[in-house]
Design a protein around this nucleic acid. Structure first.
Lengths: 223, 223
DNA sequence: TAGATTGTTAATCGATTAACAATC
DNA sequence: TAGATTGTTAATCGATTAACAATC
């Protein structure tokens, strides 16, 4: 086996892929056939070397002096991300966040199709949200297996997150998109990606706090 | 001025702060008075040196052989993040994502208080969500100024994001928490933090795609 | 052909980790 | 005191950026 297949792609590069995809789709809709990475980099505020390296990860090859074929590049990125085929997903936790994700149109663009949600609260069960069913949590293993669902989106409170993750693992789920602000313990074979609202908010608020401290400091100094 | 004030803290360290905060609050609720960073590191799956360096950023000093005072450490982290005082925020875009965030209880723990939302769609204006008002977008500058709101949460579609960001800047907003999958252009004085769902999903799905490719490859090889 | 652009190898930069002195 | 733990300086590691050869 090619050892390169085992060394997975750098996370920062993968995170930039949707940015490229979005821009390339724009170009395509305007009828553009080829594009250089200098142009991409300039438009997205990156440097061309970085773009070239990122794109190379998808397996695309460009033509010197010409650039990359736009449709081929789109296909390469979508294939690399697995966004060329739609993946079904379940949501666990039909609270306000889970319900929001059930109604979020944008996922279609990323090849993600939310089939239904699950919740432990009987009040929420049986009341569809955005046209999608909410089932009792205990039905998760059965339905996940029968529908071959591989992705679970975890939107339960932090305290319930590990139990819910255990159930997802038990249900044969292969990847968990975790919105709970807590690290999950799962077998190595299960992929976990943390969508950490609190981490992102921490970056925002620490910067804001520093700005405000500096301003107050300056104000005090000049008094 | 101290030049250290100008060099802002490393982003990865800041992102770990909520993790520490959560664990320390647990310890405190169990009546624990002191904690060593070896213990913190062990519980959170990190190494003690990293924890020590992260905590040092908040200005806390520990006592050799003893460790850190738990309540003091919590206060130091909250102060560092600006989570000791509640900050008011507006949501721009009352679609499904914006509405979800309006109802998300977890923000209280992070010192974030969502006052109201704004939307361009007359259908959405005047219909409160989770007990919070939805105003017409044109009222944003006036209300932001009068209520001294410094944080804007951007949950509009990608196409509308730059225009909405411009309006937020015009309204005197100091920090934008951007949920749109697109880079924003704002003056240097405005803080932007991107909460990029598509980037996170890209990491998840590329790993899953690779796993599935490998499995199919192995299956083919053994046939 | 000349020049623009790709693909790759080397240098730089920042964050993590290791080593170790200071100290209660 | 001895030993555990902090705080800091040095080494390592990975990602970004720069340099340059290959090529259409």
């Amino acid at each position: 086996m090619n050892p390169d297949m085992l060394r997975s792609a750098p996370v920062p590069s993968v995170r930039r892929m949707p940015l490229y995809l979005r821009f390339l789709k724009q170009l395509k809709s305007r009828g553009r056939q080829v594009v250089s990475c200098t142009h991409i980099a300039h438009e997205l505020g990156l440097v061309n070397t970085q773009v070239r390296k990122d794109l190379a990860m998808t397996g695309i090859v460009g033509r010197p002096k010409v650039g990359y074929d736009v449709p081929a590049l789109i296909a390469a990125i979508e294939g690399f991300l697995g966004w060329n085929n739609t993946s079904d997903a379940f949501i666990v936790g039909a609270g306000s966040l889970g319900r929001a994700l059930m109604g979020y149109d944008g996922f279609r663009e990323y090849g993600l199709n939310i089939l239904a949600a699950f919740d432990i609260d009987p009040e929420r069960v049986g009341r569809p949200v955005h046209g999608k069913e909410v089932f009792a949590l205990e039905r998760l293993p059965d339905l996940a297996e029968r529908l071959h669902v591989r992705i679970g989106i975890l939107t339960v409170p932090a305290k319930a997150a590990q139990d819910a993750a255990n159930l997802l693992v038990l249900s044969g789920i292969r990847a968990i998109w975790n919105y709970a602000p807590i690290g999950l313990e799962v077998p190595e074979s299960v992929i976990v990606e943390n969508m950490n609202l609190s981490a992102s908010l921490a970056v925002l608020s620490s910067r804001l706090a520093q700005t405000l401290r500096t301003e107050m400091g300056l104000k005090t100094e000049t008094e």
